[in-house]
Design a protein around this nucleic acid. Structure first.
Lengths: 333, 333
DNA sequence: CTGAAAGCGCTTACAG
DNA sequence: CTGAAAGCGCTTACAG
C-alpha cells in the first residue's frame, strides 16, 4: 500500500483484517467497536512495531501537538529548570516543545513568533530571565492558549511563579524554631521585585514572633559573595550581633559563612545561616553545607505545562497568578 | 476548494491563473518557469498573505523541518547560550528546535528520544552540562545526522567546543603585553578537563615568553569566590608575589580582586587580573570591572546549527572536533 | 459494530 | 514552460 518499507496503519489493518478506519479508531481509543477487536488491533500494532507517522496525523487532525516556548534568557540559571519541567510534563502526552529564544529586539522577536505560528503550535509558554521584566513580545496577544511560567503575564492570563513570601517565611520560621532571636536579612539589589517580597515576608514573620524587627537588620546590596562578606562586617561591628542570618541567595550566604568563620564564629553553633535558590554547586560546597530554600522550578515548569495542556483541551479557563510553594532543604548551616 | 477560510495554495493558484503545481514550484524556487510567472505568483501570495501550511508540507516532503536538541543540563549556565545560538541559526531556514531535556536516567532518556524520532526530526544536536561527561544517551547511535555542541562526541562524529588552550593563551598573552613578568593561575578542581587544558596552555605560554614557569604558580581549587580569596592569601604570603593573575573563571577572579583590595594592592596598577567565561553579571559588578575571556557560546551554537543543516542537506560529511576561538573582553582589571 | 470514501494542503514525478 | 494527477499516511464524518 505504501512505497517505503516503514510499517503503516495499512499494514496493521491488513494483518488484523479490519479497515484502516477501524484500525485508526482502535489505536486512538475513539469510536465504538468490540473490545476484542480493539485489543487485537493494538496487539498487532505492537507486534509489528507500528509507530504512527506523526506528520500525517498532524495534517489530518489539524494540530501539531507541539507548543512554543518563548524565552529572552540567554544565561539560564533559572529558566532552564523551568524548561526541563515543561518538557517533562508535555512529553508524556506526545506534545513537544519548540524552543524560541527571543532577543531583546521586538522586531526579531515578532519574526520568530511568526515562524512559530506557521508551525501551528497548539499553545505558548512564556518565560524569562526576570520575573519582573516582561518579554519583548506580548505573548498574551497571540491567538493561542498561553501560560506564563516564572514570568508574570497580564491579569487575564495564567501565570505560575514561586511563592516568594511563603519561601521567605519558611526560612525565618526555621531559624526561629532553632531558638534564634535576633535575625538579620542580607539580600540583593532593591531594584529586584523579589527583594521587596522576601524582605516584606521577613519583617512580617519577625514581628509576628515578637522579635526585634529593626530595619537595620535588613541589608539590601548585591547578589554576590563579597556583599555577604561586607554585610557581615557591618552587622557584627555593632553592639548587638545577630544570631541568625537569612540570605537572599546562596552566593551571599556563602560569603556570609566565610566571613563568620574568619571572625571565629561557629556556623550554626553561634550563628545560623540560611540561603535561597538551593543552587547545589554553591550550597553543597559551602563549609558547612548550606541550608537553603528551593523554589522548585522544575515542578513549576511541570505545572505550567500541565495547565497549558488543559487550556489546549478547552477545559475550564484558568487565569490569575498561581504561587507555588518553596521548600526547605536542610543541610548543616 | 478548502473548507476553512485560511488562504491556501489553491487560492494563490486560482488568482494567478496557474495550476497549484506551478504555484508550488514558483513559491519554492524549484522547477523551471518563466521568471515573470514566478514573480507574479510570489507577489500574489504576498498580497493574499499566504502562509503555507507547514503540516501539509511536512507530510508531502517527508521531513519535519525540525531538529531535536538533547541536553542533560537542568541548570544552564553554559547550555542556554548554546541553545539560543542553535535556535538562531536554524530559525531563518524555517527549521525549529525541539527541546528534549534528558535526565541522568538512560531508560527515561531513551523514551524521550523515541518520541523525538516519532516526530521525525531531521537531525540531532547534543549538548550537555559538562564538556567532559557524555550524555546518558548515545546520540551518535541514532540513525540521523548528529552534531555535538559544547560536548564531545565520538571521533566519527562532529563536535564543536571552545578552544580552551587558545582562550587561555589569549589571557596570558594579554597579561604579558601589559608588561607583567610573574603570572599566577588560580583555577577550579583538577577533575575538570578544562582545568588541565587551560593550565597546560598557561604553562606553555609562560615558558615561551621566558618567564618564571614555576608550578607553585598554578593553584587548582574550586570555582568559587572564596577559593580566589584563599589562593591570594597563599600566593602573597610568599617572598616573590605575582604581578598578574589569570583566573579559571570569573567568580574566582572576583574573589581575587576583593582579596587584593583588602591587602591594599591596586588592580590593575599593582596586579593585573583576568577572568574566564565573561559572565557579565559577575564581571561588570566587580570593582574594577573584570577583563575576561569569552567562550562565544552563542556563536558556537550558531555554527553547530549551521553544520547540522549542512549534514541534513547531504553536503560533504564533516567530522572531528572543531575548536572555536575564544575572545578577549577588555574591562579595567 | 465496521468500512468505503473523502479529505487534510501541500509536493513531485511525469507527460506534454 | 506548464499542468493533471497521484501521493504523503493518517482521521473523520457518514452510511450501513
Amino acid at each position: 500500500m505504501t512505497a517505503s518499507n516503514r510499517i503503516t496503519i495499512y499494514d496493521v489493518a491488513e494483518r488484523a483484517a479490519v479497515s484502516v478506519a477501524t484500525a485508526s479508531k482502535a489505536l486512538n481509543d475513539t469510536g465504538r467497536m468490540a473490545a476484542e477487536t480493539r485489543e487485537r488491533v493494538k496487539r498487532i500494532a505492537t507486534d509489528l512495531g507500528f509507530r504512527p507517522n506523526v506528520l500525517a496525523r498532524n495534517l489530518s487532525s489539524r494540530h501539531s501537538r507541539s507548543v512554543g516556548l518563548l524565552t529572552d534568557d540567554t544565561y539560564g540559571r533559572f529558566t532552564l529548570p523551568v524548561m526541563a519541567g515543561v518538557s517533562a510534563a508535555l512529553i508524556d502526552h506526545g506534545v513537544s516543545v519548540l524552543l524560541c529564544a527571543l532577543g531583546d529586539d521586538p522586531v526579531m522577536g515578532r519574526a520568530y513568533v511568526e515562524t512559530l505560528l506557521d508551525k501551528q503550535v497548539d499553545g505558548i509558554i512564556a518565560t524569562g530571565k526576570r520575573l519582573d521584566r516582561p518579554l519583548a513580545i506580548d505573548a498574551a496577544q497571540l491567538p493561542l492558549p498561553t501560560v506564563y511560567a516564572f514570568a508574570l503575564g497580564p491579569p487575564e492570563a495564567l501565570s505560575f511563579v514561586p511563592d516568594e513570601r511563603q519561601g521567605a517565611a519558611l526560612a525565618v520560621r526555621h531559624l526561629i524554631a532553632q531558638g534564634r532571636r535576633r535575625i538579620a536579612h542580607i539580600t540583593g539589589p532593591e531594584s529586584f521585585h523579589v527583594v521587596g517580597e522576601r524582605a516584606g515576608a521577613f519583617r512580617a514573620m519577625v514581628g509576628e514572633a515578637g522579635l526585634a524587627a529593626n530595619d537595620a537588620l535588613v541589608l539590601p546590596g548585591a547578589w554576590t559573595e563579597s556583599w555577604g562578606h561586607e554585610a557581615v562586617a557591618r552587622l557584627f561591628n555593632r553592639a548587638e550581633a545577630p544570631d541568625a542570618i537569612f540570605c537572599g541567595n546562596d552566593q551571599i550566604a556563602r560569603g556570609v559563612i566565610d566571613a563568620l568563620r574568619e571572625r571565629g564564629l561557629g556556623v550554626p553553633s553561634d550563628v545560623s545561616v540560611i540561603g535561597f535558590d538551593n543552587w547545589e554547586i554553591v550550597a553543597e560546597q559551602a563549609r558547612p553545607p548550606l541550608t537553603s530554600i528551593d523554589m522548585n522550578l522544575k515542578e513549576l515548569g511541570r505545572q505550567a505545562g500541565a495547565a497549558l495542556l488543559r487550556l489546549i483541551n478547552g477545559e475550564a479557563a484558568e487565569r490569575g497568578v498561581v504561587k507555588l510553594p518553596c521548600s526547605l532543604v536542610l543541610r548543616n548551616s
